[in-house]
């Protein structure tokens, strides 16, 4: 148990250091931003300026501003948006995070499930045309930029066939289908490739050979012995997968006009919305770091092999 506490404790410390580092770097970079509140006076109303000066001491030295900002973050106060009157950034994020999270979760589930299936089929029929075509699908998924793929989906299913709405997040589940598929393409390709490699390794291992020698059929072997051993390590690439999903969500939200944080991020960038950019930057980093933490813990929990080296049973 003590090892567990130490393990998780260490992870959480890394997580906090990373977030602290990112917020600090972000803060100081923002000072250099051409078009930051200082260089962009005409955009700011005097009321806004007053509020900001009161709350964030924008007229004070940088060091003091920094401390004020960090203290604000600790309280959950990310400043106010310069784009939307004096709305707090926290509120903007809260209003927009729903669609992004839904889209992200749907995409990662769809992507990994399809990816696992493709990977396993590919491995089981290694070096046959089935393997070639599933591998090719995976390579396409990795190679074709998701914004190209997204536009293609729009063209086919929304414009020509008119089966699904072209975008906007206003028709419930229907309007989530195309963006989900578009966003799931990259994780699908990653998962398929990873699972294929793992599965081929597993299928060549002695215990699979032994299972074959006990007369169990290929599909049962794949399902019972292969699947678990090939899929558990998939957890390790969940972190990078989420990271690339964040990148993907920006363009996908833009193309499908999803009112999520990705779309907001682009808008904020293009309009130099200082506090919103910082808030979203910190949010993205925290999200990724949290995913990495969860992945590490999950992996230890799920894989009995690791329990031995980390835990103190036996």
């Amino acid at each position: 148990m003590a090892k567990w506490i130490k393990f998780i404790g260490k992870r959480i410390i890394y997580m906090l250091v990373t977030i602290l580092l990112i917020s600090s770097v972000t803060f100081f970079l923002m000072q250099k931003l051409p078009g930051s509140p200082y260089g962009n006076e005409e955009k700011i109303t005097s009321a806004q300026k007053k509020v900001m000066n009161e709350r964030y001491g924008l007229d004070k030295p940088v060091a003091e501003q920094y401390l004020l900002y960090m203290a604000g973050i600790a309280r959950g106060d990310f400043g106010i948006s310069l784009q939307f009157g004096d709305q707090p950034v926290g509120k903007i994020i809260a209003a927009r995070i729903g669609p992004s999270v839904q889209l992200g979760i749907q995409a990662i589930i769809l992507g990994t499930v399809v990816g696992i299936i493709l990977g396993i089929i590919s491995a089981m029929f290694q070096n046959t045309w089935i393997d070639t075509s599933t591998s090719l699908t995976a390579i396409l998924g990795r190679s074709v930029p998701n914004f190209v793929f997204a536009v293609l989906l729009q063209l086919i299913f929304a414009i020509h066939l008119q089966w699904l709405p072209i975008g906007l997040w206003d028709q419930g589940f229907y309007s989530t289908v195309l963006p989900t598929i578009a966003l799931s393409f990259a994780p699908m390709a990653d998962a398929a490739r990873f699972v294929r490699t793992e599965m081929i390794d597993v299928l060549h291992s002695d215990f699979i050979e032994l299972a074959r020698a006990t007369g169990i059929g290929e599909w049962e072997i794949a399902a019972r012995h292969g699947l678990r051993n090939a899929v558990i390590p998939l957890i390790t690439i969940l972190g990078p997968m989420v990271a690339s999903l964040l990148v993907g969500s920006l363009v996908i939200e833009k193309i499908f006009a999803v009112p999520g944080i990705g779309e907001q991020f682009i808008k904020s960038i293009l309009s130099n919305d200082y506090f919103t950019i910082m808030g979203l930057t910190i949010l993205y980093s925290a999200l990724l770091v949290a995913v990495i933490l969860v992945v590490d813990i999950l992996y230890v929990l799920i894989d009995p092999r690791i329990r031995l080296s980390e835990g103190d049973e036996e």
């Binding site: 890394y14 972000t26 051409p34 990271a243 990148v247 980093s285």
Partner: peptide, 15 residues
Amino acid sequence: SGVPTLVVVVLMLLV
């Protein structure tokens, strides 16, 4: 490695 590439790249390009 905990820093999302997206964030770094976007920040750098803004500055």
